[in-house]
Amino acid sequence: MAELVPAFRSRALAAEQAGRVPVENLVALREAGLYRIVQPAMFGGYEHDFSVLADLVMEAAKGCPSTGWVYGLYAAHQWLVASFPEQAQHDVWGADPGAALCGSYAPAGKAELVENGYKLNGRWRFASGCDGAQWAVCASMLPPGADGKSAGPAFFLVPAIDYMIDGKWATAGLGATGSKALVLEDVFVPRHRMLTFRETTSGQTPGRALHDNPGFGIPMLCQIPSCLAATAVGAAAGALDCYLDSTSNRVTRGAVAGGANRMAEFSTIQLRVAEAAASIDCARDLLIRDLSRRSAAARAGEEITVEDHINSRRGQAFSVSLAIRAVDALNASTGGYGLALINPVQRAWRDANAVGRHISLNWDSVGTMVGQMALGLEPKGQY
C-alpha cells in the first residue's frame, strides 16, 4: 500500500473536484489484491484479521482520505458478504470474485414481502463509492412477521444493474467518496440475499459456519466502523507527514514578531507537532488493540460480551476524536499557506472532521453509551 500513497496524494485535489475516487486508484487497489484482505479463502480471499485491514486503510488515507474511506468499505464488505447465506455469496462472487460493494446502512425505503423474497422501493443515501461498485448493500425495515421473525432492520444485496445512482456529491469533507444516493424501484431481492441486523450485530449469521475461521462470527459493529475510523487516523498521519515536510525548513515572512526565523524553532510549532504525533499514535494503538482483542476472543471461542461491544464502539469513536485533535493542532498553524485547496493539511482537517460527523463515530452519540454502561444503565444506541 505504501507505494500507492504518493499517487493517491497527487490525485486528491482532482478527486475532490470530480466528487469520486479516481478510477486509477480503484484499479491499483484491486490489482494489488487489497480488496481481498478479509474475504473468505473459499472465494480467493486472504482471511486476515480486521487489524490488518485497518492498518491498510490508514496507509491509503495518508495520501487521500476519501480513497481510504472507499477502500475500507469495499474491503470490509467482502467480510460482510460472508455473513449471508451461501447462495448469496455465490451470487456476488461467482462471476467476479473481486466484485466491489458499496452500501447504505440506514434502513431507508420499503421492503415488501413477496413470493420467494422481497420487493424494494426507495432512495438509499450516502452510498460511498457507488460509482465503482458492482453490488450494493441496502438496509431496510422488514415487514412485520416476515419469515416468522419480528419486524426489524435488515441488509439486502442488490446488483448494480437493479439500481440507479442519483444526485451529486459536493461536500466540505470526504469530497471524493462519491457518496450519492441509490434509487430502487420495484426491485426483487431473493430471500437468500437478506441478512438481519440482529444476526450480523450478534455474529450469529447464516454464513458463519461456511468458513473455517471464527473471525466471521465477530459482531459487525466491532469490525466495520473501525475501517471508517481508520480513515480519520490515516488522514491525520498524512497531514503530519506533509506538515513536517513543509514546515521543517519554512521561514516566516512579513512584519511580525519573529519574522525571518525558521518555523521549526518556534516552541508553539514544536508543541503542535508533539500533540499531533501523540494523538495519532494513541488513536492507532487504540483501534488495533480493540480489533486484536475481538479476534483473539473469537479464536479462543470466548463470548464477545456487551462490554466488549461497547468498548469497541468507544475505541472507534474516540480514535476519531484523537485524529481530529491532531489535525486541528496542525491546521491552525499553517497560516495563509494552509488556505490553499491543494494543501493536504487542510484537506485532512476537513476529511477527519467529516468522519467525526458519521453517526457510528460521533463521540457525543457513542460516548453516552459508554457512560451509561459505566453507570450501570442499559446502553442506548448502536452496538
Rank of each mutant, 00 (worst) to 15 (best):
A7L: 12
L13H: 05
N25F: 02
L34K: 06
I37H: 00
F43N: 07
G44W: 00
D49P: 07
A61Q: 02
K62Q: 15
A75M: 04
H77Q: 08
H77K: 04
H77A: 08
S83E: 05
F84W: 03
A88R: 01
V92T: 05
V92Y: 03
D96C: 15
G98N: 09
C102A: 15
S104Y: 00
P107I: 11
G109C: 12
L113I: 04
G117Q: 08
L120E: 02
G122R: 00
R123D: 04
W124S: 05
F126D: 07
D131H: 13
K149D: 12
F156A: 09
M164H: 10
G167E: 07
W169H: 15
T171W: 00
L174C: 14
A176F: 01
L195R: 03
L195Y: 02
F197E: 03
F197S: 09
Q204L: 14
P206L: 07
D212C: 12
N213L: 00
M220E: 15
C227P: 00
A229D: 05
A230H: 03
A237P: 00
A237D: 04
A239Y: 00
R250L: 12
R250W: 06
R250V: 08
T252H: 02
R253G: 10
V256P: 03
A260M: 08
R262V: 14
Q270P: 04
Q270I: 12
R272Y: 00
R294M: 14
S295K: 04
A296Y: 02
E302Y: 04
E307W: 00
R314P: 01
A317V: 14
A317T: 10
L339S: 11
A340Q: 10
N343K: 10
V345K: 09
R347T: 11
A348H: 02
W349Y: 14
N362W: 03
D364I: 09
G367A: 11
T368G: 04
M369I: 09
E378R: 07
G381D: 06
